[in-house]
Design a binder for these strands. Structure first.
Lengths: 196, 196
DNA sequence: CAGCTGACAGATATTGAAATCTGTCAGCTG
DNA sequence: CAGCTGACAGATTTCAATATCTGTCAGCTG
């Protein structure tokens, strides 16, 4: 498709793979398609990624990391912890909702990839819970939150809000009442964190 | 299969449909199979259920109602509301986990049916949230809980625990850490309900 | 005549042969 | 000689022919 003289790098292959996935979807995107779009033989792709699964997982990881970075900025902020927590949860929900609603096909594609990816998703969730733990610890330190074990509490906050970030609930994010439900859950969770 | 002299009733058709679904799964269970297992022609089945979709939804409703009944007993209890809430949530989670883990194929079958059913699932969820609202109102009345609007709060409690009852999370119910996660979320939610 | 049957039209699912893909590797090329 | 190619074996997917199913209804049966 686009025969270039440039060197074939892992980076260029990942870019091309993302493009092919966007165009053909997860079921029909093949390694041969990726090679074709780079103007090389598929054997060359296998030089950089041992298998198709490894290539796909690398694409998934990239995609997940983009979300992580944005939220890391909020978690590392220095404002009042309760506001930071609310902002973080709202940002996560908004990002997910935007992706799912804005380009449903691409979102569906990444949902399939995430289902295939072995470690990647678990690690991503671990990072997000780690960010929540930072916020909660900050709250405990300033005396606005209570928690015997911030890591466990962070996981609880993450799971209590699963409905608003786990892709398996994506269909429900279109419902008109979803924003109210989100606010009610956040209200309940924040109350549960407050120092007695 | 079992030609009986008994009258053909909606009840008997539902029973046979459940059996056929259990045996063949949701993809291969046909109206013809149901009729065959009752020893009648498929035209007779259509006399009681206008379409295959209506028949399947009726089966789904039956299945959902079995869960509702068990929990209604707990919700209507007269013990301390916090304990009642904990028991109710634990019973819901235990029931789901037992069904999903005990007979995964049957559970997968009902998951497909629930996905097809239009109103049925929404109504079922509405009933469960209604039961939670009863418990929360009891807690507000006795002064152990605080809630400006028990109906909204009940929905928030239900959604905060989605991870532990929504079938889309069924795979995670096998994880060893799930029980701890459940307890952490319940702890957080109960704290959020307590009167300040 | 109330309830059931079975043939039918259009929609959907199954099947198996042909096409394509994955992953490997010996050898070509710059 | 480092990096790429393209043919290959076995696995997977596609596609079109074939079979089955859904929903209807005129007519049979007890």
């Amino acid at each position: 498709m686009a025969p270039t003289t440039e060197t074939l790098t892992a980076e260029r292959i990942l870019e091309a793979t993302e493009e092919v996935l966007r165009r053909y979807g997860p079921a029909k995107a093949t390694v041969v398609d990726v090679a074709r779009s780079l103007g090389v033989s598929h054997g060359s792709v296998y030089r950089h990624f041992r298998t198709k699964a490894v290539l796909r997982e690398a694409v998934t990881r990239r995609w997940l990391d983009r979300t992580t970075e944005v939220l890391a900025g909020i978690a590392a902020g220095d404002g009042d912890p309760e506001t930071r927590l609310r902002d973080w949860l709202a940002a996560l929900f908004a990002a997910k909702r935007r992706k799912a609603g804005g380009d449903p096909e691409l979102f569906a594609t990444y949902r399939v990839l995430a289902g295939e990816a072995g470690e990647a998703v678990g690690e991503h969730i671990g990072e997000l819970i780690g960010q929540l733990a930072v916020i909660i610890r900050a709250g405990v330190d300033t005396g606005v939150f209570t928690s015997a074990d911030p890591a466990t509490t962070a996981a609880a906050v993450f799971h209590a809000t699963d409905r608003f970030h786990d892709p398996c609930h994506a269909r429900e994010w279109e419902l008109p009442e979803i924003q109210g439900e989100f606010e009610a859950v956040v209200h309940l969770v924040v109350r549960g964190l407050r120092a007695a």
